[in-house]
Design a protein around this nucleic acid. Structure first.
Lengths: 147, 147
DNA sequence: TATTGTTATACTCTATAACTATA
DNA sequence: TATAGTTATAGAGTATAACAATA
């Protein structure tokens, strides 16, 4: 067992480049997509919650939600409990967008993996638990730049 | 062997989120860092070559190089062969920046992996060949938006 | 004419500071 | 006063279109 951390770090960095290219650039920022996913996973959320989760400032989230709303992917609603609060929801068009991106990513990934010899494909799938271990390594969620 | 492509795609996506957070945001864009790395790997390059490799337009690269030059990470030079050409080089400060980012990524990654039980650590390192297989899957370098 | 790079302009996305409305 | 959100302003980073200089 080597436990060569530098090699692992370099491999992971290259891997992120590959993954990022699975979905062709479509004008959606990482934050925009991640915000829509958060809305899909957890339902309507306060604008300020979204800002914290995404690690951006409240004004940045205000503007992102404004663009998402303009493009039809999200909508603003009020809270019955607190008139100051804005609840942001995913629209059907937003859910469609996420569906399409996922389908593209899976399709392109499958095409790429299909080019590998069967033995290598088995190796890749056998690594899924290890990849999940790595993916689950949580950092102290360094969202401290939110003032 | 499951060969569950959807699970693999989802795991890879989560993994990229983890890797992206290894280095704290420091105002350098993905393209900026990737351009500096290209200069380090291959030596001075034409501005237009950099634009193609990074998948951005020539004007975008002109402006990026201008910012990198202003910040001291890269420098412009002429070509002796062709007076139209701008050759971009990495400066010592640029190399230092890359060194520091690499060191941070490795240090944080090590700290995170150290929190895993030994058996899981072994599992992660055993997956490096599979990760390299995935990272090496080349897409047709869809840089077709360059006109 | 074709190639290399820059300038002009516009939009996204981010930040900080100052503001409004509600609690 | 404190909290939720917006508006104002500035800078990075991207694009397309138009331009200058060189081949």
């Amino acid at each position: 067992m080597d436990h060569d951390i530098d090699a692992l770090a370099a491999s992971l960095e290259q891997l992120t480049v590959m993954v990022r290219r699975l979905v062709p650039p479509d004008g959606m920022s990482l934050t925009a997509v991640s915000t829509l996913r958060a809305l899909q996973d957890s339902g309507p959320r306060r604008l300020s919650e979204l800002a914290v989760v995404q690690g951006v400032t409240q004004p940045a989230m205000t503007q992102l939600v404004t663009r998402l709303e303009r493009d039809g992917y999200a909508s603003r609603g009020g809270s019955p409990d607190d008139a100051r609060v804005v609840l942001v929801s995913l629209t059907d068009a937003g859910a469609d967008l996420l569906r399409r991106r996922r389908a593209t990513r899976v399709r392109v990934l499958r095409e790429l993996i299909d080019t590998l010899p069967d033995a290598d494909q088995d190796l890749v799938y056998a690594a899924v638990p290890a990849i999940n271990l790595l993916a689950g390594l949580s950092q102290p969620d360094d969202r401290s730049r939110i003032r």
